[in-house]
Design a protein around this nucleic acid. Structure first.
Lengths: 233, 233
DNA sequence: TTCATAGTTCGATCATAATCGAAGCATGGA
DNA sequence: TCCATGCTTCGATTATGATCGAACTATGAA
């Protein structure tokens, strides 16, 4: 009995170490060049060329050519979502790197997941916004409430700009480290960008770790603590 | 940069066709013997023995020995969840079997997903129960309401029995065919079992298709149509 | 125009792992 | 006890696919 989608082919695409490293690097949401990805994966340019072709043919990545540069990115949110799901299962089953790097705790604390905030901080933010009634849930749908609209507008987010996009504004994304949900979608992205702009947090030039400044952490905790968020609004 | 969980190893486990077939068969929620899985995967007993060892070591399956029989099952809901996520991505990317069998539409309509109802029917049920206020959502948490308690009790479900289990009673499970959520957890399982008992639907002896009787479909639609469910309670 | 850089294609190499025949062990039934 | 059945282990075979050196194409800058 062989029915339903063919997960073997898709999983085999992800199951090569070099390709897994490429996909993981692309989880930052950045579009990276083939050369950068060759460095990330630790293989030669010719090898990465071959891998990228397979990923593109499999529908996991898209490529944008600009002159002699080819910018590669994940082909959509759903790829990121499935990868996070695999990460969650891998973490839950103890499938960890042999050498857990010094960045592991930092990744768990705060990291970028396809351009939005993930890790403990991401979960904290999502939970606080729900607790304060800024976000409402209806099944799989997450919507911004009236108080939420005021909240994010006060924070400096241009909602009119977000509404121009056809992508969902709010979406739940299962966090592999916290095993809870954090906020994805265009609003999730805008929140991270805004907090970077405010100087609360910054992304490393390489990798996915997000670092909060001392002041940024304080401001973040002020805004996103459930029993304190009400007072600030 | 090689950080976070090792998805390559896990994906490679799933990425072998024989093992993917095994895991897909186990999505029915039944515990199957090694011989049955050898038939499912279309390989010899010695090959399946080798594959099962890998899946068990990887934490994806558990084995229960009874005499000379070894009963294999998925090691948890989270495995089923990640597999469904991969199925969704595979379906969305057109990674389908070369020969889409005659069972494909039936699988999309109603199928068993780790012992609970999936497919269009599963989504319909979950949606209707939320619309009628029988289920309440708070982030990732799904809870049975007072009206929901009465509803399922009237349907013949023994909630006291369900509450004895440590497993979550209600959980959302993303449906690969419908791209929406259906109800999982012990309640989701109990609902399917109950409707089978009422003769509304039955599982094929092999595979995961669920067939509704004419009368069963009528009763199902009566109970789980959002604008009609209120009248029946 | 020349040179440097980004990236692809070709083909050979080689490591890996799925596969099954043969043999053996464990269990159950007559 | 003997035979049948379920399952595992061992070892050889073979197909697959990742890999990179060599060579090439395309683009950009001086």
């Amino acid at each position: 009995m062989k029915d339903g989608p063919d997960i073997a082919r898709l999983a085999a695409l992800i199951g090569d170490p070099a390709r897994a490293n490429i996909l993981t690097a692309l989880m930052s949401g950045k579009a990276l060049t083939a050369s950068e990805l060759a460095t990330e994966a630790g293989v030669s340019p010719q090898t990465v060329s071959s891998h990228l072709r397979k990923l593109e043919e499999g529908g996991l990545t898209t490529v944008l050519k600009q002159g002699r540069h080819r910018y590669v990115s994940l082909s959509g949110d759903d790829v990121a979502q499935a990868l996070e799901g695999l990460m969650g299962l891998a973490a839950g089953r103890g499938h960890l790197r042999v050498r857990t790097g010094p960045k592991d705790p930092e990744l768990r604390h705060a990291r970028v997941c396809y351009n939005h905030l993930a890790g403990e901080r991401g979960v904290q933010m999502f939970r606080a916004m729900r607790a304060c009634g800024h976000l409402a849930l209806d099944g799989d749908a997450v919507t911004l409430t009236d108080t939420g609209t005021r909240f994010v507008t006060d924070l400096g987010i241009d909602l009119a700009e977000l509404e121009k996009s056809r992508a969902p504004m709010c979406r739940e994304c299962l966090d592999w480290s916290a095993r809870q949900y954090h906020l994805a979608g265009t609003l999730g992205r805008a929140m991270l960008t805004r907090m970077e702009h405010l100087g609360w947090m910054s992304r490393a030039s390489e990798g996915r770790v997000i670092t909060l400044t001392t002041q940024g952490a304080a401001r973040f905790d002020t805004l996103f603590m459930p029993d304190r968020a009400s007072q600030s609004v």
